[in-house]
């Protein structure tokens, strides 16, 4: 399987400002890659380097085994890009904007644009200046997805979208993966990336500090439970559960963390009178960084 994105010691400094430091990364064909990091980490810098909007000060990048700068036009045919701050001339109508962008790519079936707009609940006849921030973001999503590109590069694609539309977006990503498209998406939020990504990388201060398959993360996932009982509690049964930690029993309430599947827990609970149960989502990001073992080609965040 070929690499769609391959980065070798890719670096970018803006004058004396740090942008990106010696980034090594590969993304395979058909993969959905989540690119996480706090503000100013270098996510947009990486993405703009891939699109030849800016040029590296060190290292190399390949898209489909070609130089992003020398083959920019050919590569851009195969890429759909959503900028972190998607803006277009606001004095035009949505359909006018999308038709023009489609024409730059040799045209996209009208039906495809209407389908996407329909799913995202975007009014094609509206003037862009009259749209809310989230609705403008939808225009950006449509133009990125409409030509079914081999590679989708999405910089914070869900910013400004309401939860319902975020779900639609995740569906679009899943469909893209099912169709064999590769997706590289940046985000601040682990949960949204984790929902669709095969792998995630975390970048901090211009360096990749973690890189892991989401499936492996899930295996380590820790759920926190907070259970209130209506009857007596068999403390020893809980203490004997595999993978349990931090067990505290306070009156009718038991709190603990569980690092294994909840099957055994459910068997124990079945023998109790349960009044209420609360399980918190595992904080994958925390876990990710805590348990992370550096893999080949990944920089440790040593001199950050």
């Amino acid at each position: 399987m070929g690499y769609v994105i391959r980065l070798e010691k890719l670096s970018k400094t803006y004058g004396s400002r740090r942008g990106l430091v010696d980034l090594d990364l590969t993304v395979g064909e058909g993969e959905v890659f989540g690119y996480l990091g706090p503000n100013g980490a270098g996510k947009s810098t990486t993405i703009r380097l891939l699109l030849d909007l800016i040029r590296p000060t060190g290292g190399k990048a390949w898209l489909f085994d070609r130089n992003p700068s020398e083959h920019a036009v050919d590569l851009h045919r195969r890429i759909g890009y959503l900028a972190g701050d998607f803006v277009v001339n606001p004095r035009q109508r949505v359909s006018e904007c999308l038709t023009f962008l489609a024409a730059l790519r040799g045209g996209v079936p009208r039906q495809r644009i209407e389908d996407l707009a329909g799913r995202l609940d975007l009014d094609l006849s509206a003037r862009i200046k009259t749209l809310s921030k989230g609705n403008r973001q939808k225009v950006g999503l449509v133009q990125a997805f409409m030509h079914r590109p081999d590679l989708l590069i999405l910089d914070e694609p869900t910013s400004g979208l309401d939860p319902l539309v975020q779900q639609t977006f995740l569906d679009l990503v899943r469909e893209a993966r099912a169709a064999g498209q590769t997706v590289f998406m940046s985000s601040h939020i682990m949960t949204e990336v984790e929902a669709v990504a095969d792998r995630v990388g975390i970048i901090r201060e211009g360096r990749l500090v973690a890189l892991e398959a989401v499936a492996r993360l899930r295996d380590h996932a820790i759920h926190r439970f907070d259970i209130t009982f209506a009857g007596p509690i068999d403390q020893s049964a809980f203490a004997a559960l595999p993978g349990i930690s931090d067990l505290t029993i306070d009156g009718p309430t038991a709190q603990f963390a569980l690092a294994a599947s909840p099957n055994d827990l459910i068997r124990v609970l079945a023998r109790h009178e349960v009044a209420s149960i609360r399980a918190t989502e595992p904080d994958l990001e925390e876990l990710f960084l805590a348990h992370y073992q550096p893999a080949d080609g990944v920089q440790e965040n040593s001199n950050a």
């Binding site: 699109l51 909007l53 920019a72 036009v73 851009h76 730059l104």
Partner: peptide, 14 residues
């Protein structure tokens, strides 16, 4: 400066 060129130049436009 308005940010419009990012979009154009990420299309097949040299």
């Amino acid at each position: 400066e308005a940010g419009y060129l990012d979009l154009l130049l990420s299309h097949p436009v040299s």
